[in-house]
Amino acid sequence: MPESRSALLRAALENALGGPVDVIPAQRGVRITAPAPADTDWDRWHAAIGILRQADSWGSHNYGSGPHLWAEVIEP
């Protein structure tokens, strides 16, 4: 059985960012969140943006613990 889009995105983000990400249910699928890379870490930013663009929607938010990236994937 092939992996879901959200599982593939999660694994790719964990690899690009060098650490675990959070996966939570969303209204129409799954939301993946992770702390944003350091401002000066251009390689991680470039990799993360390339991965995020594969999601159905994505963006960033500044939580109390600092900036985070998020991606939502619609799944049946």
Score class of each variant (00 low, 15 high):
M1R: 13
P2Q: 12
E3D: 06
S4E: 10
S6A: 13
S6E: 06
A7T: 11
L8T: 13
L8I: 12
L8D: 00
A11S: 14
A11C: 02
A11K: 15
A11I: 08
A12N: 07
L13N: 01
E14D: 02
N15S: 14
A16R: 05
A16M: 04
G18F: 06
G18Y: 07
G18C: 07
G18H: 10
G18E: 10
G19C: 04
D22N: 12
V23R: 15
P25A: 15
P25S: 14
A26P: 00
Q27F: 03
R28Y: 00
G29P: 01
G29N: 06
V30M: 14
V30G: 00
V30P: 00
R31D: 03
I32E: 04
T33L: 11
T33N: 05
T33Q: 12
A34Y: 05
A36Y: 03
A36E: 10
A36N: 09
P37A: 10
P37C: 10
A38N: 05
D39P: 08
T40S: 06
T40K: 13
D41G: 01
D41W: 05
W42V: 14
W42Q: 11
D43F: 01
D43Y: 00
W45T: 01
W45V: 03
W45H: 13
W45I: 04
H46P: 00
A47M: 09
A48C: 04
A48W: 00
A48P: 03
A48K: 05
G50V: 11
I51V: 05
L52S: 01
L52H: 02
R53M: 05
R53A: 13
R53D: 05
R53Y: 00
Q54E: 14
Q54C: 07
Q54N: 10
A55V: 06
D56P: 01
D56R: 11
D56A: 03
S57T: 13
W58S: 13
W58G: 02
W58C: 09
S60G: 09
S60M: 13
S60H: 12
S60P: 00
S60F: 08
S60E: 12
H61C: 09
N62Y: 07
N62D: 11
Y63S: 12
Y63P: 01
Y63K: 14
Y63I: 03
Y63V: 08
G64L: 07
S65K: 13
S65A: 13
G66S: 08
P67I: 10
P67M: 15
P67D: 06
H68R: 15
H68K: 13
H68A: 09
L69Q: 09
L69E: 08
L69M: 11
L69W: 09
A71C: 04
A71Y: 02
E72D: 15
E72P: 00
E72V: 13
V73I: 15
I74F: 01
I74N: 08
I74T: 13
E75H: 06
E75T: 12
